[in-house]
């Protein structure tokens, strides 16, 4: 699937969280995308000034409907427009699908890891467990992966550890709950950094090494691990995973910047 520039028409927008919007796009000529891929959005002002930003795709499969969930950055040039201004019927320029690294495919989860011999897929390990770890809006590509896993009824055990600021800041809350009920094995573990729901067993706070160790698939089970979030979150988590014995080659990371 060669990436290219496409014209996307906004089909619908929804409020995803108090600070984020979900955009359903109809992308003319979109070749479909794998779960975990991203695209670049380019906005151009009447005077020709343009700004391009990368966004993870929350959907996957052979469809021209592409779903984004965009977090509004306080000093952003692009995200405030996408979250607050864009309406159904508006058109955007998008470039994609992009990136084959931070991707999961049903039935061939081990494909493409570096250091393996031969073609992609030759190191395929059926039902190799998958651990997803999200910080904030970093859940977007991981939701796409978890949904692809459920849609394929893939037998690999899946867990998602998701750190959100408050219960109101959980993206895809209904969809994630539904995934936990689906037949593909999936478990969701939430941690809250600023405010918990009433009666929550743990106090609000940044995720700790101990909480991570308690909620992730042990290194001995050789999970593939996908980590997405702010740069600081991803690097903290990746360091802990290595300390817990996870093979660096089994850890795939995607940093979206910030602190």
């Amino acid at each position: 699937m060669r990436p290219g520039w496409h014209v996307a028409t906004v089909a619908a927008t929804h409020r995803e969280t108090p600070n984020a919007a979900r955009l359903d796009l109809d992308v003319d000529g979109w070749p479909g995308n794998a779960a975990g891929q991203h695209l670049d959005v380019r906005l151009t002002a009447p005077d020709g000034y343009s700004a391009t930003r990368s966004y993870s795709i929350a959907s996957s499969g052979p469809t021209m409907r592409v779903v984004l969930a965009v977090d509004k950055l306080p000093d952003g040039e692009v995200s405030p427009f996408l979250v607050d201004e864009v309406r159904a019927g508006d058109m955007l320029e998008v470039h994609g699908p992009l990136g084959a690294f931070f991707v999961w495919r049903p039935g061939g989860a081990g494909s493409g890891s570096a250091g393996s011999a031969g073609a992609a897929g030759s190191d395929r390990v059926d039902a190799r467990p998958v651990q997803l770890i999200a910080g904030g809006s970093g859940v977007v590509p991981l939701y796409a992966i978890a949904q692809a896993h459920a849609d394929a009824d893939d037998p690999a055990p899946f867990r998602l550890l998701y750190s959100a600021r408050t219960p109101d800041d959980v993206y895809f809350a209904d969809e994630l709950r539904a995934l936990a009920e689906a037949s593909a094995p999936f478990r969701l573990d939430l941690v809250y950094s600023r405010r918990t729901p009433d009666g929550w067993p743990a106090p609000a706070g940044r995720i700790t090494r101990e909480a991570l160790e308690a909620a992730v698939i042990p290194a001995a089970d050789r999970p593939l691990v996908y980590v997405c979030g702010s740069t600081g979150f991803v690097e903290r988590v990746a360091d802990w995973l290595v300390g817990l014995g996870h093979d660096t080659r089994s850890i795939r990371t995607e940093r979206y910047g910030g602190t």
Binding site: P3, L39, G99, A100, F101, F102, T231, T253, R255
Partner: peptide, 13 residues
């Protein structure tokens, strides 16, 4: 601030 090489996919495509 930095990101990682995933970001290169678009600019280098």
């Amino acid at each position: 601030e930095h990101v990682d090489g995933n970001w290169l996919a678009g600019p280098l495509a």
